[in-house]
Structure formats: C-alpha cells, structure tokens
C-alpha cells in the first residue's frame, strides 16, 4: 500500500505539481480541483509507473488519492 501510495502521489505530482499531496482524503474533483483532463493524465502517469491501467468506467468510484492508491495496490502484482 505504501509503495502504491508513493507511486500515486508521485504521479499526481508530475501531472499537477500545484496540488497539495498531503490531502489524501479530499475529493479529487471538488476539493483538489482536478478535472477530467487531469484525471486522464493521472491515469496515464500511474500506468507508466505501476503498470496498472485504470479503465474509464472505474473513474467514478475513485474520488480521493487514498482510494486511487488502494485501487492500484489491489491490482499490483
């Protein structure tokens, strides 16, 4: 989980360097201000770092950084 979280925060930092990475439980859209383009870039950066590709239909349930990290951790081999 720790490695997945590190990878996810590093990915977010690369696509949105102005976002506060310590806000793990804030809503990515409403509180951190990401939009669909940011999410797409984040998904691409996560795929690059972890090999986990998040299909578009799962975006809806991934509302926080922690949720994304848990999603990635569950699928990493």
């Amino acid at each position: 989980m720790t490695t997945a979280l590190d990878a996810v925060t590093a990915a977010l930092s690369s696509v949105a360097p102005d976002v506060d990475l310590s806000r793990l439980d804030d809503d990515l859209y409403e509180e951190l201000g990401l939009d669909s383009m940011d999410l797409l870039n984040l998904a691409a950066a996560i795929a690059e770092r972890t090999g986990v590709e998040i299909p578009e239909r799962d975006y809806g349930e991934l509302r926080t950084l922690r949720a994304v990290a848990e999603y990635v951790a569950a699928r990493q081999h």
Binding site: L40, A43, A44, A47, E53, P55, E56
Partner: peptide, 15 residues
Amino acid sequence: AVRNEGVPPARHVLA
C-alpha cells in the same frame, strides 16, 4: 466508451 475501452489512458479521447 467503445473507443476508449482497452486503450491505454494516454490515447483516450475526452468528451
């Protein structure tokens, strides 16, 4: 939805 299915995020198209 069809177009983006199974395609890496880097090649997704947004609405």
